[in-house]
Amino acid sequence: MPDLIHPTAIVAPGAKVADDVSIGAYSIVGEHVSLGAGTVVGPHCVIDGHTTVGANNHFYRFCSIGGMPQDKKYSGEPTRLEIGDGNTVREYVTINTGTAQDVGVTRLGDDNWIMAYVHIAHDCQVGSHTILANGVQLAGHIHIGDWAIIGGLSAIHQFVRIGAHTMVGGTSSIRQDIPPYLMGAGDPFRPVGINSEGLGRRGYAPEAISALKEAYKLLYRRNLKVEDAVAAMRTLMQERPESRDAVALMVDFLAESSRGIARS
């Protein structure tokens, strides 16, 4: 449907653009870009690099998507950016491709809400259903789990992992891993408890939320080393089998943490 592409837009001959994609005035789509069905590209956007975009995404005006990584080691390798379905990407968002020093691909999952001026650097792996509020800055190699919410103007150090269902208050500075389910804020980030309200809205049973509160106490209130807290959580999983999967997510995260976790 040619009328969906503004006459001032530039679409490279090699680009793969679904028939119902809308591309606004003065936007540029590179030759290695694929845009899935129902996607809307607003005016004055640039989508470049080896970038694959799924269905029903909306890029608002002045986005820069698929640019080369801001990494001095980058030497022009054909690294990639992969974006899933149903994402909202607001004004002035920048998302870079990966680097050869990591997995070579930056990923954004499905149904994410990426607000204005967010930067997602090379090799970040962002899950699904997340919210990154205005001005959130992700350095390279960061992993963010599903349903995480990051408050505005927060900055996250490279290689940090943020677990699923976390809620980070605005203007936070995050230098170490944040386990799943936590909420907190500050410079540096300080946890204050479990995101029980968010978990309830997502269908977590009261028994599971109660078990997660106990897991939080083991990690943050009993003066235990992380490995000892993990051992106690494994016992908790046996004592409360109905909450096993919920607690296991935290246990697995802690076992894989390499930067250490944010502590109160």
Score class of each variant (00 low, 15 high):
200 G>W: 10
215 A>C: 09
248 A>Q: 14
180 P>K: 03
235 T>A: 10
214 E>M: 08
184 G>Q: 08
252 D>K: 13
193 G>S: 07
222 R>E: 15
215 A>M: 06
218 L>Q: 13
228 D>G: 01
204 Y>N: 11
220 Y>E: 00
238 Q>N: 12
227 E>T: 15
232 A>E: 10
181 Y>E: 01
206 P>H: 04
198 G>H: 09
207 E>C: 03
213 K>E: 15
243 S>C: 14
213 K>V: 04
186 G>H: 05
194 I>Y: 05
205 A>M: 11
251 V>C: 05
226 V>A: 05
185 A>K: 10
247 V>A: 07
194 I>K: 05
235 T>R: 11
192 V>G: 06
225 K>M: 14
220 Y>H: 15
194 I>A: 06
244 R>C: 13
236 L>W: 04
186 G>D: 02
192 V>F: 13
185 A>N: 11
217 K>E: 03
214 E>Y: 12
218 L>C: 10
213 K>H: 11
247 V>Y: 06
224 L>R: 15
197 E>I: 12
179 P>V: 06
226 V>Y: 00
198 G>C: 08
233 M>S: 04
243 S>Q: 06
202 R>H: 12
253 F>W: 10
244 R>G: 02
223 N>G: 12
191 P>T: 13
180 P>I: 10
231 A>W: 02
221 R>H: 15
225 K>R: 15
249 L>S: 14
246 A>K: 04
196 S>L: 09
222 R>L: 08
220 Y>K: 00
251 V>Q: 02
245 D>W: 02
214 E>R: 11
226 V>Q: 07
218 L>R: 09
188 P>D: 01
225 K>C: 01
214 E>I: 12
250 M>A: 04
217 K>R: 15
196 S>Q: 10
226 V>S: 08
197 E>P: 05
207 E>M: 05
244 R>P: 01
228 D>M: 11
244 R>K: 13
216 Y>L: 11
250 M>L: 07
224 L>A: 09
220 Y>I: 00
252 D>A: 10
203 G>F: 13
206 P>W: 11
229 A>Q: 02
215 A>W: 04
239 E>W: 03
227 E>Q: 14
218 L>I: 03
229 A>F: 02
202 R>V: 07
250 M>D: 03
247 V>E: 01
187 D>K: 03
230 V>N: 06
182 L>H: 02
234 R>M: 09
246 A>N: 03
179 P>L: 03
243 S>A: 13
242 E>G: 07
189 F>P: 04
222 R>P: 00
226 V>E: 00
185 A>Y: 11
251 V>M: 08
212 L>I: 13
202 R>P: 00
229 A>N: 00
219 L>P: 01
195 N>G: 11
203 G>W: 09
250 M>N: 07
187 D>V: 12
